[in-house]
């Protein structure tokens, strides 16, 4: 196995996540895309870990950290989306343009 195949895959996933982040209308879908991106990063980390194989298993450790933080972030993110939905009765991101100049 080459390293680069994993990296390419992770790049693909990341780009897909970017597309989803920018193109989706629903706030939950955006969060979903963010998860995709995070997952791509995890893949990257682990692939490098497999290559480097240091004594501390740094890549794996950080992958674990990332999963944890991602979980926390999803929890908060969804809470916020739900709150916004309560106030605005819509989860459509396009409708949230209070900051419009």
């Amino acid at each position: 196995m080459t390293l680069v195949q994993f990296l390419l895959l992770s790049s693909l996933l990341f780009s897909l996540g970017v597309y989803g982040l920018l193109a989706r209308r629903n706030a939950v879908m955006i969060l979903l895309s963010v998860e995709l991106m995070l997952n791509a990063v995890n893949l990257n980390l682990v692939a490098f870990e497999a290559w480097i194989r240091d004594a501390f298993a740094t890549g794996n450790v950080f992958a674990i950290f990332m999963i944890t933080v991602a979980a926390a972030e999803v929890g908060i993110g969804l809470a916020i989306v739900i709150l916004i939905f309560r106030n605005r009765a819509t989860a459509n991101v396009d409708d949230f343009e209070l900051m419009r100049g």
Binding site: L3, L7, S10, S15
Partner: peptide, 18 residues
């Protein structure tokens, strides 16, 4: 983004075996 990342990866780690 894909182009950047893929390109960078390929150029940097094109021939790394794991």
């Amino acid at each position: 983004t894909f182009a950047l990342l893929a390109g960078t990866s390929w150029v940097a780690f094109g021939d790394v075996e794991i």
